[in-house]
Amino acid sequence: MLDASDLDVLVPTRDRPAALSVTLAGLAAQTVTGARVVISDQSATPVQDDPLAATAVRLARHRGHRVEVLRHVPPRGLAEQRQFLLERAGRRFALYLDDDVWLEPAALEILLTAAVELGCGFVGFAVQGLSYLDDRRPHELTAYEEWNGGVLPERVRRGSPAWQRHLLHNAANPVHLARRADDGRPWWPYKVAWIGGCVLYDRERLVELGGFGFWRSVPPAHAGEDVVAQLRVMERYGGAGLLPSRAYHLELPTTVTDRRAECYDYVLDQP
């Protein structure tokens, strides 16, 4: 098996033991081993006390990954949990992986290969919902544009044409985009507004730009913390989505029910 010794996989979780088990099972089946998996557990019942989750942790360890489960309570918001994880990462690359995402076996290998070859601030797979396979939305795909000749820094803000790229990741749009653009390449980069659920950063660059340290300046109940981090990194170092996506959303109800406080408004919209 190949090696993932340059990779920290950072998994925030809260009260989703079954979904976390599926996520960890996907990691256990990867074609690369040697990753360090750090789980920030804010569940009412600790992950280690749930039979499904505990078994999945053991499975990932058995398959060659180092897995650490850290209790991190009380919750102080999504951004704080991500910052907590970032401060415990130390490898070249940090992959933020949500606890309701299953990865194809080649996903980590492709992410690492693309990150090295492209040399940008982040790469990622948009998570796709397979229940929407028959829901085709060509009007949401008009902003699609591939990166050719390298990934460049770019400033993306609300109201700009590039902001409309967020529609590319709705429903099963990544599946339809990949089928439309497939010409036999194992993977290719495209331009994004941001990516949710599965994003691999150059860790030092994310830290340089503040990571998620802005958590102190936003209300505890907030959303869009990953948007702020990615827009900052993209502006300095560039970022790209990868197709075909190897990440699948488990399509559970969202745990972020209060979206009135968007981090963008508190961080990027300030003078």
Score class of each variant (00 low, 15 high):
residue 1 M to S: 13
residue 1 M to Y: 10
residue 2 L to C: 12
residue 15 D to F: 03
residue 17 P to A: 11
residue 19 A to H: 11
residue 21 S to Q: 15
residue 21 S to M: 14
residue 25 A to Q: 15
residue 28 A to F: 13
residue 28 A to R: 14
residue 30 Q to V: 07
residue 35 A to P: 07
residue 38 V to Y: 11
residue 38 V to W: 14
residue 55 T to E: 13
residue 60 A to V: 10
residue 61 R to P: 08
residue 65 H to R: 11
residue 71 R to K: 13
residue 73 V to P: 04
residue 79 A to M: 07
residue 80 E to Q: 15
residue 82 R to L: 09
residue 82 R to V: 04
residue 84 F to K: 11
residue 85 L to E: 13
residue 87 E to L: 13
residue 89 A to R: 12
residue 89 A to K: 04
residue 93 F to D: 10
residue 93 F to Y: 14
residue 95 L to V: 07
residue 96 Y to M: 10
residue 101 V to L: 12
residue 102 W to A: 05
residue 103 L to S: 10
residue 104 E to G: 05
residue 108 L to P: 06
residue 109 E to W: 08
residue 110 I to H: 13
residue 113 T to A: 14
residue 113 T to F: 06
residue 127 V to Q: 07
residue 130 L to M: 12
residue 130 L to Y: 13
residue 133 L to N: 09
residue 133 L to V: 12
residue 133 L to K: 09
residue 142 T to G: 08
residue 144 Y to I: 06
residue 146 E to S: 08
residue 153 P to D: 05
residue 156 V to H: 08
residue 158 R to A: 02
residue 162 A to N: 04
residue 162 A to Q: 06
residue 163 W to F: 09
residue 164 Q to A: 12
residue 164 Q to F: 14
residue 175 V to Q: 08
residue 182 D to K: 01
residue 185 R to L: 10
residue 186 P to F: 06
residue 189 P to S: 03
residue 190 Y to H: 05
residue 198 C to A: 12
residue 199 V to Q: 03
residue 201 Y to V: 02
residue 205 R to W: 07
residue 207 V to E: 04
residue 208 E to M: 04
residue 209 L to S: 02
residue 216 R to Y: 08
residue 220 P to C: 03
residue 221 A to C: 08
residue 223 A to H: 04
residue 223 A to K: 03
residue 231 L to E: 05
residue 231 L to C: 06
residue 231 L to M: 10
residue 233 V to Q: 10
residue 233 V to Y: 10
residue 234 M to G: 01
residue 238 G to F: 08
residue 238 G to S: 10
residue 239 G to W: 11
residue 243 L to G: 03
residue 245 S to E: 06
residue 245 S to I: 01
residue 247 A to M: 05
residue 247 A to V: 01
residue 252 L to H: 01
residue 258 D to Q: 01
residue 259 R to Q: 07
residue 261 A to Q: 02
residue 263 C to Y: 00
residue 268 L to Q: 02
residue 269 D to K: 04
